[in-house]
Simulated scan of single mutants.
Amino acid sequence: MKYIRFGIYILLAFFLIVPFLVFPRIVRVRVVECYNQYGLCSSDFMAKVNLASGKSINDAKKMVAEEFKNTKLIDNYSFRFKLPATLRIDILLKKPKYALLNKNTNEIAVLDNKGTVLEKTDKTNLPYVVTGDNLPNVGEVVESKKTFALELLYSIYYLYQVKSGEIVKDSLELSIPKEGKIIFPLEGERDILLGSMKLILSRAGKFKEIDLRYKNPVIRYE
Rank of each mutant, 00 (worst) to 15 (best):
K2P: 01
I4E: 06
Y9E: 07
A13W: 09
I17H: 00
P19W: 06
P19K: 04
P19V: 07
L21S: 00
V22S: 00
V22C: 01
P24I: 06
R25H: 11
V29W: 03
V29C: 07
R30D: 11
V31G: 01
E33D: 06
E33H: 08
E33Q: 13
C34I: 07
Q37H: 14
Q37E: 15
Y38Q: 15
Y38C: 04
G39A: 14
C41E: 04
S43M: 09
D44W: 14
F45W: 14
M46G: 00
K48Q: 13
K48H: 08
K48G: 01
V49K: 02
N50L: 07
L51W: 01
L51M: 08
A52F: 07
S53R: 12
G54F: 06
K55G: 05
I57W: 05
I57D: 02
N58C: 00
D59W: 02
D59E: 13
K61L: 00
A65Y: 00
A65I: 07
T71Q: 07
K72Y: 09
D75N: 14
N76C: 02
S78A: 13
S78H: 08
S78C: 02
L83C: 01
A85Y: 12
T86C: 10
L87V: 05
I91Q: 03
L93W: 01
Y98G: 07
L100E: 03
L100I: 07
L100M: 08
L101Y: 00
N102V: 10
N102I: 09
N104M: 01
N106K: 13
E107I: 09
N113F: 08
N113R: 12
G115Y: 03
D122E: 09
P127S: 04
V129R: 07
V130R: 09
G132C: 04
L135C: 04
P136L: 11
G139D: 08
E140R: 09
E140K: 15
E143N: 13
T147D: 01
E151I: 06
Y154H: 11
Y154P: 02
S155Q: 12
I156Q: 10
I156T: 10
Y157W: 13
Y158I: 06
L159A: 05
L159E: 08
Q161M: 02
V168T: 09
K169G: 02
S171H: 03
E173G: 05
E173V: 11
I183D: 11
D191T: 09
I192E: 15
I192Q: 14
L194F: 14
M197A: 15
K198V: 15
S202L: 12
G205Q: 11
K206Q: 13
F207R: 02
E209A: 05
I210V: 11
Y221V: 10
